[in-house]
Amino acid sequence: MDLIKDDYKVSLEVFEGPLDLLLYLIKRDEVDIYDIPIGRITDQYMEYLQLMKVLDLNIAGDFIVMSATLMLIKSRMLLPVEEQKAQEDEEEEDPRWDLVRQLVEYKKFKDAADHLEDLEVHMENVFARESEHVELGVAPDIDMRDASIFDLIASLNEALGRVQEEDLQEIFAEEYTVGQKVTYIVENLKIAKRITITDLFGGMTSRQEIVCTFLAVLELIKLNRIAAVQDDHFASIVVEPRDPEEHVGGGIEDLEESDEIEGELI
């Protein structure tokens, strides 16, 4: 019994989806795809679903949807022709037509996929100069220009690491706000054009100041005023103004006010 189970399992896993299974059934019985004996195919399809259940395979919802479709078609086929016409539009064709169309189209792409597979196997044997065989996977030539949020957070951590332990006994007044730092960054970028994150945090000794600066960077990125870019893997992150003439400088005042609250929360 176990043996049989395994056999089934192997053959069942081949199906990529309900259409694949249907194609298999049609091919196995050598039926005309344009004239599917819907009753028989539906029964066989249901048998397979049953088997999958017995074998505890997770039946994807797609398989269930298809069985409902098959049932619907089957029931429509059972209606006498006149009643079918009465129920449906004048132009309505064979109830199987939609499914056939889908199957035929799927088959075409399955063939196209086979062709791609052949090409892939062929290309395995082909090496270009520099033995630059195209390798799959996340490649090093990925565009590193846009630094991710995680890169930014890493820089924040780095900056925070440099700060000496604060004296936790005292309560300081809020010295810095995000809005203030926004202005600071914008003003500096007017002069410098490009500032590395490290320079931006450089000289800052308070945790709060660094956090405010970091939030200011995020805020400015969100507002599309600046861009955080990285020239290379693990290179330092650089902030630069985006569209310097138009944006930087405009509307900073409101920002300063609205962000005061945010800054104080930290």
């Binding site: 990529e16 892939e120 395995e124 799959l136 996977g137």
Partner: peptide, 10 residues
Amino acid sequence: TMRLSKPALE
């Protein structure tokens, strides 16, 4: 060499 799966190729 890594090859693509059937679903990936489709």
